[in-house]
Amino acid sequence: MKQSIQTLRGLACIFLVAYHTVGSAPDRGLMMGDGTLLRHLAESFVYLRMPLFAFVAGLVYTFRSVTPGQPVAPFMLGKARRLLIPMLVVGSTQFFFQTLAKGFDLGHLAEALWIPIFPYEHFWFLQAIFVIFALVAFLDSFGVLVQRIAVVIGLFLAAAIASMDLIQTELLSIRGALYLLPFFFLGLYFGRFGDPLARRGGVPIAWALVAIGVIVTQAGLFGYLDGPLPREAPLGLLFGAAFCMLIIRTGWTNSKLEFIGKYSYGIYLFHMFGVAGLRMILPKIGIDQPYLMFVIMLAGGLSLPILVEQIASRFNLTRMLLLGQKPLPKAKPSPPGSTDEVGATAR
């Protein structure tokens, strides 16, 4: 299961970095306009990318979740360290460099003060998933989600709220949290109660939803509908949910994706430094062909964060500020007569 989860994390990372390499809008990233192949591919995966991250988060939560009667505060303090500190540090650093790239403006730089409160770039996910953890941990502490029916009700209620767009506030990325919550509940269901598609007819229905989702998505992108299907639309939610369920039940593993998945958090935090940096450097060294730039920027957006995480994880200060990790365990003193002590004395 662990290898499969890391594989899915790796796949989600490639979806994410590829999307930001192309650009979240035609005037960003590689500035690929509507109708281009790369823009089309980037928009095609919008219904799968963040749902997969949220689904995996819900599944992993069940491995070390809050138990009934357990206080919520220690769990949430750990999540605050893991999610909010890197969000503030790395998010503010990215904001600073973006401001410098556009021409230093002290007034614009002051807008970084809003990063803890409102969504900023891709860091909105960290705010949103923190809100979800707070809600689910609170419900778990009272034993609400130990019953299968309660999780099912929560899942459908969350999906209804998301699809109707009842709450539109961007404060603390609450709107984003409501969009991700059904997928988190779906992952939680898988972790606690097993595969819901195991029942007769479940798999064909899921494949049918994926097929319909692909057809409607492509019809919208090719202009046969009024516009692309909104990601919060019921079919968009069902498309993402069916994809997550089908891919996790295969137990699929891939060593290369698994390696990427091991560094998924660092990639999520730092990929834009590699992507944006290469976008500025490549044309200056004569590389301006969009598809070649895409491959190089995608590779840089994956490899630079891996290097950063490998280095940052070696020092307690950078572990906490950049990755939200606990301090390294202190080395225990060698007992008298041990090999280490004898070797040190001989030297």
Results as ranks from 00 to 15, higher is better:
343 G>R: 12
331 A>T: 09
303 S>K: 05
34 D>K: 04
322 L>G: 03
121 E>W: 14
110 A>H: 09
343 G>P: 00
176 G>C: 01
281 I>N: 00
48 L>T: 14
42 A>K: 06
160 A>Q: 04
274 G>E: 11
234 P>A: 01
193 F>D: 09
190 F>A: 10
238 L>W: 00
216 V>K: 00
245 M>P: 02
81 R>H: 09
251 G>K: 12
150 A>M: 06
318 T>D: 14
189 Y>M: 08
27 D>F: 12
330 K>R: 11
188 L>Y: 15
71 P>L: 08
3 Q>R: 09
85 I>W: 07
301 G>Q: 13
49 R>D: 10
77 L>C: 06
34 D>T: 15
317 L>Q: 09
341 E>I: 15
158 A>T: 02
307 L>Q: 02
196 P>R: 02
225 L>V: 01
204 P>I: 10
308 V>I: 15
259 F>W: 08
268 Y>I: 00
35 G>D: 12
246 L>M: 04
13 C>K: 03
31 M>E: 12
102 K>D: 05
32 M>A: 15
137 A>C: 06
230 P>E: 05
185 F>W: 13
90 V>Y: 03
329 P>T: 01
268 Y>G: 07
38 L>G: 10
158 A>G: 03
251 G>D: 07
338 S>W: 10
80 A>M: 13
130 F>A: 01
119 P>A: 06
172 L>F: 14
243 F>D: 00
56 V>C: 10
118 F>S: 03
44 S>W: 06
81 R>E: 05
328 L>R: 15
165 D>M: 06
176 G>N: 12
300 G>C: 01
234 P>S: 03
120 Y>Q: 05
254 N>H: 07
335 P>L: 07
228 P>H: 05
154 G>S: 13
245 M>L: 15
52 L>P: 02
168 Q>E: 05
162 A>T: 00
91 G>L: 10
221 L>T: 03
46 V>T: 15
222 F>S: 10
317 L>M: 15
133 F>A: 11
223 G>D: 02
287 I>K: 12
224 Y>S: 02
32 M>T: 06
239 F>E: 00
307 L>F: 12
47 Y>L: 12
129 I>V: 11
131 V>F: 09
119 P>W: 04
76 M>N: 11
169 T>D: 07
303 S>F: 12
58 G>I: 05
3 Q>W: 13
220 G>W: 02
15 F>D: 06
122 H>S: 09
294 F>K: 05
219 A>Q: 08
302 L>Q: 02
345 T>R: 11
